[in-house]
Design a protein around this nucleic acid. Sequence first.
DNA 1: ATTTCATCCTGGAGGC
DNA 2: TGCCTCCAGGATGAAA
Length: 281
Amino acid sequence: MPELPEVENIAISLRPILEDQTVQRITCRAPQILKGPGAQRRSAFLKALSHQHITAVTRRAKRLIIGFQNEQAMIFQLGMTGKFLLHDNEGAAHKHAHLQIALNGSQEVHFIDARRFGRVWLFNRLDLRNPDTDMLDAGMGPLGPDAPTISRKAFLAILTTTRPVKTLLLDQSRIAGLGNIYVDESLFATGIHPATPANTLDQEKAHTLHKHIKAILKRAIRYGGTTIMDFANPYGDMGRFHKRLKVYGRHRQSCTKCNTPIKRIVLAGRGTHICPACQSQ
DNA sequence: ATTTCATCCTGGAGGC
DNA sequence: TGCCTCCAGGATGAAA
């Protein structure tokens, strides 16, 4: 499930493939995944992108942004299973290749999403220097500061709520980019129980949590992200971070710190992994 | 204001 | 081997 480190790696891989290239044609086989101002007239939107130059491939939180010379833009929310794969134009496309970008030459980049939770937002005009305001105009959810670069001050400011700290960290409007995996990992690293009300964390715990979130995301980016089920970069390479997970997906295995079996609980409707000894409430 | 719940989806896992 | 049921969860929007 792509969280920020996975999307960052996709952006890193896609950039040299797409940037400064000219689009030949973009086709969409699953119009229901299209959202935003351009979705109403999707045929016209996609048609206008033929022969357009791709000027930017960027990321904000878990969103991947592709910008074109004429200021049209597409923003991908990958949902659970969204990914991109290179397709050489020979042979059948993947069953779930919902959106296909054909470049000049035989190269194609396909957006593939089996579960179809992913969305592609179409913007007729997007200011890539400050996309946040445009995203909001289009009805995309508001985003808090990006988790890898959030300042200590801003982080402390979001903790002033009685909500469970896990719920808070998953709330993209407060802090953007974390998902279930990296929240569980960050809370374990800090020794915090996920149900702890955010405003009861003392100064030291809050600082340590802030530090661990940034460090874990940074390491996950460096290791190419985490592959649980589907994630892969456009070349089909899997992330290498899953070997370094300490609690996520390690139900009943022993804690790397104290050997206590890792427990799986449900919090905020999400599978939540903790060491019951290291993360007391 | 906050939290829970249903919804969207398919493929993989586990039970029998 | 195969059929069935259950479940994963990012984001959203309604309901409690």
